[in-house]
Lab assay of single mutants.
Amino acid sequence: ELVLALYDYQEKSPREVTMKKGDILTLLNSTNKDWWKVEVNDRQGFVPASYVKKLD
């Protein structure tokens, strides 16, 4: 499943990933309501769920 980055996000820990507004990311896990695991540029990590939106 793919998600769209709604905002820029700068990683604050090694478990997170940086994304730019408009990026298309692969959603790996959305079981946590606050932090979703995504893959971007061959890196996996977490981003705030409120910063991304699922693409239909």
Rank of each mutant, 00 (worst) to 15 (best):
residue 40 V to E: 03
residue 41 N to I: 12
residue 30 S to A: 13
residue 38 V to A: 02
residue 12 K to I: 07
residue 24 I to M: 07
residue 24 I to R: 06
residue 17 V to Q: 03
residue 6 L to Y: 03
residue 13 S to N: 12
residue 52 V to E: 01
residue 10 Q to L: 13
residue 52 V to L: 15
residue 12 K to M: 11
residue 33 K to R: 14
residue 39 E to D: 07
residue 28 L to H: 05
residue 6 L to N: 03
residue 15 R to P: 05
residue 10 Q to S: 11
residue 10 Q to N: 14
residue 18 T to H: 05
residue 14 P to A: 12
residue 40 V to R: 15
residue 5 A to V: 10
residue 48 P to G: 01
residue 12 K to D: 06
residue 12 K to Q: 14
residue 48 P to V: 02
residue 48 P to H: 03
residue 43 R to M: 07
residue 40 V to T: 15
residue 41 N to Y: 14
residue 51 Y to N: 04
residue 49 A to N: 03
residue 1 E to W: 14
residue 17 V to H: 03
residue 20 K to P: 01
residue 15 R to V: 10
residue 42 D to R: 11
residue 2 L to N: 06
residue 23 D to K: 04
residue 14 P to W: 10
residue 47 V to P: 00
residue 15 R to T: 11
residue 23 D to R: 04
residue 40 V to G: 13
residue 31 T to D: 15
residue 10 Q to G: 08
residue 43 R to L: 06
residue 15 R to F: 12
residue 35 W to A: 02
residue 35 W to C: 06
residue 32 N to S: 10
residue 43 R to C: 06
residue 33 K to T: 11
residue 52 V to P: 01
residue 12 K to N: 10
residue 12 K to W: 05
residue 32 N to K: 07
residue 12 K to G: 08
residue 56 D to Q: 11
residue 18 T to I: 03
residue 3 V to P: 00
residue 20 K to M: 09
residue 2 L to T: 09
residue 54 K to T: 08
residue 46 F to C: 12
residue 3 V to M: 07
residue 13 S to I: 05
residue 50 S to M: 11
residue 36 W to G: 01
residue 39 E to N: 08
residue 36 W to C: 04
residue 35 W to Q: 03
residue 40 V to N: 15
residue 33 K to V: 11
residue 40 V to D: 10
residue 34 D to H: 15
residue 55 L to T: 06
residue 51 Y to H: 11
residue 9 Y to L: 01
residue 41 N to Q: 13
residue 44 Q to E: 10
residue 26 T to C: 12
residue 10 Q to E: 15
residue 15 R to W: 15
residue 9 Y to A: 00
residue 16 E to F: 07
residue 17 V to L: 15
residue 25 L to T: 00
residue 12 K to T: 12
residue 15 R to I: 12
residue 51 Y to I: 06
residue 1 E to I: 15
residue 39 E to Y: 09
residue 32 N to Q: 10
residue 48 P to C: 04
residue 6 L to R: 06
residue 41 N to E: 12
residue 14 P to R: 09
residue 42 D to H: 13
residue 32 N to H: 11
residue 41 N to C: 13
residue 22 G to N: 06
residue 32 N to G: 10
residue 17 V to E: 00
residue 9 Y to M: 01
residue 48 P to M: 04
residue 23 D to N: 08
residue 32 N to W: 08
residue 16 E to V: 05
residue 14 P to L: 10
residue 45 G to R: 01
residue 9 Y to H: 04
residue 36 W to N: 01
residue 10 Q to F: 14
residue 8 D to G: 06
residue 17 V to T: 06
residue 30 S to H: 09
residue 44 Q to A: 12
residue 10 Q to H: 14
residue 28 L to Q: 04
residue 53 K to T: 14
residue 24 I to F: 06
residue 55 L to Y: 09
residue 25 L to C: 11
residue 5 A to D: 01
residue 12 K to F: 06
residue 15 R to D: 13
residue 28 L to T: 05
residue 28 L to E: 01
residue 28 L to I: 14
residue 41 N to D: 14
residue 54 K to E: 06
residue 19 M to R: 00
residue 46 F to S: 03
residue 48 P to I: 02
residue 49 A to G: 04
residue 44 Q to W: 08
residue 56 D to S: 13
residue 27 L to K: 02
residue 4 L to S: 05
residue 51 Y to V: 05
residue 49 A to L: 02
residue 24 I to V: 11
residue 30 S to F: 07
residue 35 W to D: 00
residue 54 K to C: 09
residue 27 L to F: 03
residue 31 T to C: 12
residue 25 L to K: 00
residue 18 T to L: 03
residue 21 K to M: 08
residue 23 D to M: 15
residue 6 L to I: 10
residue 21 K to A: 13
residue 50 S to T: 10
residue 31 T to H: 11
residue 36 W to H: 03
residue 39 E to C: 14
residue 22 G to D: 05
residue 5 A to S: 05
residue 27 L to P: 00
residue 22 G to K: 02
residue 44 Q to C: 10
residue 6 L to T: 04
residue 19 M to G: 00
residue 50 S to W: 10
residue 39 E to L: 12
residue 55 L to W: 08
residue 50 S to H: 12
residue 29 N to F: 07
residue 3 V to Q: 02
residue 45 G to Y: 05
residue 37 K to N: 07
residue 21 K to E: 07
residue 38 V to K: 00
residue 30 S to L: 05
residue 29 N to G: 07
residue 43 R to G: 04
residue 29 N to A: 09
residue 28 L to R: 06
residue 52 V to G: 01
residue 3 V to N: 00
residue 33 K to F: 09
residue 39 E to Q: 15
residue 44 Q to H: 08
residue 43 R to A: 06
residue 21 K to H: 06
residue 2 L to G: 03
residue 37 K to R: 11
residue 26 T to N: 10
residue 27 L to A: 02
residue 24 I to N: 02
residue 10 Q to T: 15
residue 37 K to F: 15
residue 45 G to V: 05
residue 1 E to S: 13
residue 49 A to V: 05
residue 8 D to P: 06
residue 36 W to T: 03
residue 40 V to C: 11
residue 19 M to Q: 02
residue 6 L to P: 00
residue 35 W to S: 02
residue 43 R to T: 08
residue 46 F to K: 02
residue 12 K to Y: 06
residue 28 L to G: 01
residue 49 A to Y: 03
residue 24 I to L: 09
residue 9 Y to V: 01
residue 2 L to S: 08
residue 23 D to T: 09
residue 21 K to N: 04
residue 42 D to Q: 12
residue 46 F to Q: 03
residue 7 Y to T: 07
residue 20 K to F: 12
residue 3 V to H: 04
residue 53 K to F: 10
residue 5 A to T: 03
residue 15 R to Q: 12
residue 30 S to M: 09
residue 31 T to K: 11
residue 53 K to E: 11
residue 4 L to W: 08
residue 39 E to P: 00
residue 55 L to G: 04
residue 42 D to F: 12
residue 7 Y to H: 11
residue 37 K to M: 15
residue 14 P to V: 10
residue 49 A to H: 03
residue 39 E to V: 12
residue 11 E to R: 14
residue 51 Y to T: 07
residue 27 L to N: 01
residue 38 V to F: 01
residue 38 V to M: 02
residue 12 K to S: 11
residue 22 G to H: 05
residue 5 A to L: 02
residue 34 D to P: 02
residue 36 W to P: 00
residue 1 E to V: 14
residue 50 S to I: 10
residue 33 K to Y: 09
residue 11 E to A: 15
residue 2 L to V: 09
residue 54 K to I: 14
residue 48 P to Y: 03
residue 52 V to W: 02
residue 4 L to N: 02
residue 34 D to S: 12
residue 13 S to C: 10
residue 6 L to H: 03
residue 13 S to R: 08
residue 48 P to F: 03
residue 32 N to Y: 08
residue 1 E to K: 12
residue 6 L to V: 07
residue 44 Q to I: 14
